[in-house]
Design a protein around this nucleic acid. Structure first.
Lengths: 329, 329
DNA sequence: CTGAAAGCGCTAACAC
DNA sequence: GTGTTAGCGCTTTCAG
């Protein structure tokens, strides 16, 4: 790879001038042109590593997410990417697998690679951000909050859980279970909280603990929990799935057993990705994942550009897509 | 962030010794210990940017894929990631959106960030790898080939298309269409080729051009093509979808029109991700995406470690999951 | 085994 | 406007 020095020699200018041309600093048109020509002939591309070392900051931002195979997070990633690209940043995607150790490795890398900033969907509420914050890099939390005083973009999780449960109540179900993610994950806990606030008002209130299941935020987690609920002496007549993948798992189990909605009521928080034959009798509470990514990326870039306002948290509204029920059985 | 010099001073040794400790070069145990202590007290983390600049190579590998929202590619990414992590590399994921311009930007970045290597699923067969190859970085192609003499891991695409079509023939269908991706994408073309080799043998052979559709490798692409086929004066009685997302689109359209398989036969190359209620009457030709990622990552790491054998291409076998048909109508 | 010192490629004062 | 120069933090000869 050619360096700035070779370009400079060929163009008959100093290395500094070459640097200026590539950084949009004013240079006489004649010299600028000969630099561009020389650069083209040598196929010169500025070495980002050197630039980063010198500037103490790179043009890449880290997006750290817990599950790259979850379409919710890839949609989020698209949002981040589109905004970042626009602003001249590239995005590196880091998958933590919900593990604190992987998360902390990636955070270290973000620091030691001098990345411009990080957008983080924390693996748990024990995530340690001391170092990255001490390093001065801006961090924005997405999807889940952190306990630190930093920017964040969240979903209205409680409201989403509530809306899901209410839709089922309105449809006439009375024994409504909830399948959610691990207690340590805020979104899981909050969505279940929304559900709880609804079912505790029902006639049969008081059964909540019997009807909630904490599992993994994945398809198999939803499956296992649903099977468990069906094995109850008095199984539920409806269920709220607290995320998209769990919703898929729930529907898989139900359809295997011929309990297709509305036989058993189903509401899911999040969309059902790539569905082919979804029963229309499923309520969805759509979460604007892409929008969350866009918003977070914009905030981060403002911070990178020197914004020093106090930390903000933005809560995104979700959208209820009520089930349409077929003629009543 | 502390530097190697501060650690050195505190430990009473030279910077070189600190460097040695962090690079596993032999140093007397006494000094090593005091370096470790000093580093811990100062919370020292080696600056990767500086190391990269000096070494002319970083510990990150680029994975460049055309669609991060396609579960096929995220599954591939997981495979890559697991192997890379194991070997001490981190993976940065770059999404090209099937656009050559984005692809070439990311390739440039990989070079100018001195990345250790790149795994690339080319956006088209016009992908230009001159620069990255000239830079000496190893490149492994996945999913699609490149026209360059480099390592690659591919699916048996023709065989997959053939198997899909054959399964439909065996099930008794005779007018079998094919919905595939853009002609410029090798996998699209090859899978269609497999289908063609089967249907051209049928009684009604000769209709192939009428029954093939080239569209985008996405859900809406599959939808549009399926609708188009159904509008034919003599619509097909079955269809091969050349990738997972197109398969989803096809099934969506069919189920909206009450043409659920086996009313119309469907075979899809790739899995149907996150399905809830898939008719059992759908044939799938499973593609081992994760395995492709694992294999590619291993090859790349061997190259990074100095392997100079001639380029190899590995073709992965797919797995036919035949439809199970309900009692005949 | 250890230290001194050069330099990876670039940018940003600082002088002119 | 432009050139000179001093590092950014690290690794790696080269001596000792």
């Amino acid at each position: 790879m050619a360096t700035i020095y070779e370009v400079a020699r060929r163009a008959g200018v100093s290395p500094a001038t070459v640097s200026r041309v590539f950084n949009g600093v004013r240079v006489s048109e004649a010299k600028a042109q000969s630099v561009r020509d020389a650069a083209a002939e040598l196929k010169f591309t500025p070495n980002r590593t050197a630039r980063t070392l010198r500037r103490q900051s790179s043009e890449v931002i880290a997006l750290v997410i817990p599950d790259i195979e979850n379409p919710y997070f890839t949609e989020l990633a698209r949002g981040v990417e589109d905004v970042a690209q626009e602003a001249g940043y590239s995005v590196v995607l880091c998958n933590t697998d919900e593990q604190l150790s992987k998360e902390s490795t990636y955070l270290d890398i973000a620091i030691s690679e001098n990345m411009a900033g990080v957008i983080l969907a924390p693996a748990s509420d024990h995530t340690n951000l001391d170092d990255v914050i001490a390093s001065g890099r801006p961090v924005v939390a997405v999807d889940r909050s952190t306990g630190y005083d930093i920017d964040g973009v969240m979903m209205a999780n409680r409201a989403a859980g509530k809306a899901a449960a209410e839709a089922l109540v309105k449809a006439g179900y009375r024994r409504i279970a909830c399948i959610t993610g691990p207690r340590e994950i805020e979104t899981a806990f909050e969505r279940a909280g929304g559900w709880r606030s609804v079912v505790s008002q029902l006639d049969g209130g008081g059964d909540e603990d019997e009807l909630v299941r904490y599992s993994t935020f994945r398809v198999d987690g939803g499956r296992a929990a649903m099977e468990d609920l069906l094995a109850l002496p008095e199984p539920p007549d409806a269920v709220v799935a607290a995320n998209n993948l769990m919703g898929v798992g729930v529907l898989q189990v139900l359809s295997e057993r011929g309990l297709i909605p509305p036989r058993i009521g189903v509401a899911v928080v999040g969309g059902l990705p790539f569905t082919t034959l979804t029963p229309t009798a499923v309520t969805m509470v759509r979460l604007p994942a892409r929008h969350m990514g866009v918003t977070a990326a914009r905030m981060l870039i403002e911070r990178i550009n020197g914004d020093v306002e106090p930390a903000r948290t933005i809560v995104l509204r979700n959208e209820l897509m009520p089930a349409s029920y077929p003629a009543r059985a």
